[in-house]
Design a protein around this nucleic acid. Sequence first.
DNA 1: CGACTGGTTGATGATTGTCAATAAGTGTGG
DNA 2: CCACACTTATTGACAATCATCAACCAGTCG
Lengths: 245, 245
Amino acid sequence: MSGRGGSGPIGISHDARYRDASGANVIEALKAQCLRQRQLKAGEDLFGPGSQQNAIFVLIEGWTLLYTLLENGKRQILHFAVADTLLGLPPSKGTVSTFGVQALTRAVVAEIPHRRVRELVAERPGFALALAQSMARDTDLAFDLLTSIGRSPARVRVARLLLQLFVRAWSRLPGHGIEAVRLPLTQEQLGDATGLSSVHVNRVLHELKREGIAAFHYRRLRILDPDRLIDAAEIDPETLKSWIV
Amino acid sequence: MSGRGGSGPIGISHDARYRDASGANVIEALKAQCLRQRQLKAGEDLFGPGSQQNAIFVLIEGWTLLYTLLENGKRQILHFAVADTLLGLPPSKGTVSTFGVQALTRAVVAEIPHRRVRELVAERPGFALALAQSMARDTDLAFDLLTSIGRSPARVRVARLLLQLFVRAWSRLPGHGIEAVRLPLTQEQLGDATGLSSVHVNRVLHELKREGIAAFHYRRLRILDPDRLIDAAEIDPETLKSWIV
DNA sequence: CGACTGGTTGATGATTGTCAATAAGTGTGG
DNA sequence: CCACACTTATTGACAATCATCAACCAGTCG
């Protein structure tokens, strides 16, 4: 950004396939601007809710989660982010972040100061548009989760999250043949993401296993019957495809 | 956007105060690109979920709501949008919209073809960045609602929505002295926005009225005790301020 | 002044949360 | 490789929250 009007973007964003006008990869372009990397241990916060950043981040390696905290002590997980995801910042200058980012595994992030982002935008107009589109995708994902949590029973919510996590983990695996993936999540985290208690998540997981649909146990997710899982998740195949990174 | 890489943005976005590098108002800049306006009757769809648009829209007048539909026939309201709000489109070229936009009142929208948006972006780099920031705000709002629905009981959800709607309606009123506003909503719509049944919304509204906190009755919202409403909504004043347009 | 939409109320039951005690799995240091 | 400490998962009993159904009432609009 060239003038006084704005600041660094952005909220969060994903996926290596957003390209600016010249076809250059947005994520790669950002990585190239990186001054320093940060190493995170599992459980460590990249930044907390209410913090103010002067940089955006690209997740290079590992899993992270976006979350908010409530007055009543509960937590809502907003998104699970994997490598090559943009983890950004507030919607206007000086805004504090409404959410926090925490590492689920050991993770590596690139830190790109807002100033660098503004330079990139000034150099390549299409870059900012790609950022905007990336943000639009984030909004869509948030809307999707919102709909799931607001209007679906527990079983559907859990099935949907498992399916989404599986698709995203599986699609970045070298050999795509396998129907089992490793997800660095606890049942409590599944609960915080679906708006359920960990106990109830456990019950639903058992139900899904008993029915031969999917089995999640100590960080290992096996899809036993993909079709019936899609059915249980009550999503249309179109939405499913949009999850494939 | 100058090259082949992108398409028209965007998701949804709000608020007249986003400015691009030259300080020009993004919403106003978009309105200036408007080729034609559309008039909507109350209840009419601007576009439905799953539709494909080749334009973005700016709400000039009236109220609209963003919504999704589920297989089980239920509806989730994602956002209530007021005048000077950007109602945009999918995160990449050819994507169908995941949500629909419906008019709550008689409404007027400006239609801006994606091509025009690309021209604007090419002319003014800061414009796209302002779009991205606007999208970031949308994401924040979605996260906020997500947290509310996922992790708060009915009373808190309803109080929070009433407070947000009041603040937004009140802040665009000429005389700011009044503690009552007109909201073009039914209890069923409050339910679809909070993930509750209309019956339960009704009960919570009664509770809030009986306690002398707030009264919503046939489209008229009166705030009886602002402090206790803020308390009931379990929000911190910082978040509240961010809602003031 | 109807007709219709939207709101109100009570009874009942399903879904989900909480508590608490136990078991299973994981990781670490010897 | 084993013992220990710790985290995570499992299970049952019970309670709270919220949905559904159905009948009735109130307000609004033409």
